[in-house]
Amino acid sequence: MTTDIDALLQSPAVRRLLLQRSRLRWRLAGLLLGAYLAYAFAGLHATDAMGQPVFGSGVNRAITAGYGIILLAIATSLYYLYAVNRLLAPLKELLRKANS
């Protein structure tokens, strides 16, 4: 089992896959955490701008942005599920070849 793992680690395809997955994970995480912190700080330092109405008299920028970030978290999660499955598909093929 150890030999197989060593062989996998040496494989350029696996190393590329690890890198792609790592990029995907941390970019999306950075996007979400950045959006959340930006929202929190806008609430502190741009109170009036966040209070400006957007669609009608009641819905302002703070409410729109807040629900926007909740939707962004959902969309990011769904995209990640799709992207990981797509990234992992070549690995299955690689392992099939390695074991055939």
């Binding site: 999306l28 995480a29 978290a73 959902i74 990011t76 999660s77």
Partner: peptide, 11 residues
């Protein structure tokens, strides 16, 4: 809540 759980998924 939403962001925290999305990060749990990613990390």
């Amino acid at each position: 809540g939403a962001v925290g759980w999305a990060l749990i998924l990613l990390i």
